[in-house]
Nucleic acid binder design. Sequence first.
DNA 1: CGGTATCCCTGGGGATACTG
DNA 2: CAGTATCCCCAGGGATACCG
Lengths: 106, 106
Amino acid sequence: MAKELPACPVETTLMLISDRWKVLILRDLMEGTRRFGQLKKSIGTVSQKVLTANLREMEADGLLSRRVYPEVPPRVEYTLTETGYSLKPVLDAMTEWGTGYQSKHV
Amino acid sequence: MAKELPACPVETTLMLISDRWKVLILRDLMEGTRRFGQLKKSIGTVSQKVLTANLREMEADGLLSRRVYPEVPPRVEYTLTETGYSLKPVLDAMTEWGTGYQSKHV
DNA sequence: CGGTATCCCTGGGGATACTG
DNA sequence: CAGTATCCCCAGGGATACCG
């Protein structure tokens, strides 16, 4: 890691996944390996530049791995590392809470 | 709610707690009622304006309640609603994951 | 003490064009 | 297809001053 980790674990988690698209990337990759184009399409409104930037940071933080296939046209796949996948409880909790909130706020 | 909720529950949760300081506000209020000044001090670097803005949004979203005591000097206390407190599993998951990540990244 | 009211500024993010 | 490379923008956030 480049930056110092905060003492508070919540802040640590926050600093690693609080960028605009990271949680949605995690949501998608929890399902399994995805190609760049798949992620871009699934996330919706993100630009290529920013999606790439977020992915690179997550790779640097050890949350996912990037695999380039030497083909033409190129194929790049992203897969969660164990560390990344271990965020599943966080995502699950968000899913459950979000579902409940939706049901109360038609 | 003013805005439309996204179909994806994760996005719903995200849109409600992804502002810069909201998760830290939740972290503090999980411990119990807090005064404005206590929150400001505990969170650290946030400015008054932004802290107020975040708190007002969370109030509008039904995550916390604001109680003003008609005293001089004024006292304002913030308390989680049931809905807000029901985010505890999310915070707990973040705490646990952050702790683990810290231990691996000295 | 817990706010508004202003002004200012940064950088995360978007749009477009180009490339291996 | 999956990127860089540029340029641009604005909204979230900071600093300061003042108020009830």
